[in-house]
Amino acid sequence: MTENNHEIREIVIPGEILTEDKSFIPGRGAIRQGDRIISIYIGLKEVRGKYINVVPLRGKYRPEIGDKVIGKIVDITSVKWRVDINAKDTGILKPRDAIDVYDKRSQRGRKKSSRELEAEAMKMYELGDMLIANVVSVDRVSDPVLTTVGESLGKIDEGTIIGIDVPKIPRIIGKKGSMIKLLKDLTTCRLFIAKNGLVWVKGATSEYEKLCIEAIRKIEREAHTTGLTDRINYYIQEKKKERGLK
């Protein structure tokens, strides 16, 4: 759903015929039905070379390996956490994926037993904690496995988190990150847009955070339109004037 100022893409609905030209191949969001290619979503029709895609406008998050997600600890046992990642299944976080403990040595130089380390690691997150995690494995039979070991991963301890429509994430990021940069520059907020449709926002004051969230809501609502970057720029500037924000 990247921005293209010259092309207004058609809104299509499930079952709508996208083409009857046999030289096209159904891409994302489209299937072949006899001689025709039809849409399976409410979305934007998009032709890319031989492929016809439909970019959906709403939809649930489906985890993929390597996704950075924002999750919430919803259950703790002695050996693992369960993390709500805004998907069909809850994620699993095991102590050895929570903290890089296996290199640490106790004061005596003895390597701690893995049981000791696990017990130690299990103290890291409490029920209700929000964290940024990486999806390390996904398959159809078991729950997605997460890790918080890695740069910029781990517990979120400030700011606020809002939910957005997952298919609209690319629009909130913009072409080459232009939209997210605009949001950050104009609202002076820090932002993290996770793949599972949760957005972390932290600004100098709540007024800036509110403005940033309002701008994100506007992008979400107008994701299927053109000229969005200019409009968002204008919108934020105007609101800032109105509200006396720098």
């Binding site: 709500d84 209700g128 904690d129 929000m130 606020t160």
Partner: peptide, 13 residues
């Protein structure tokens, strides 16, 4: 009942 687990950061916010 995942939504009923209160987010610690949201409460703090």
């Amino acid at each position: 009942d995942t939504p009923q687990v209160i987010s610690t950061v949201q409460r703090k916010y």
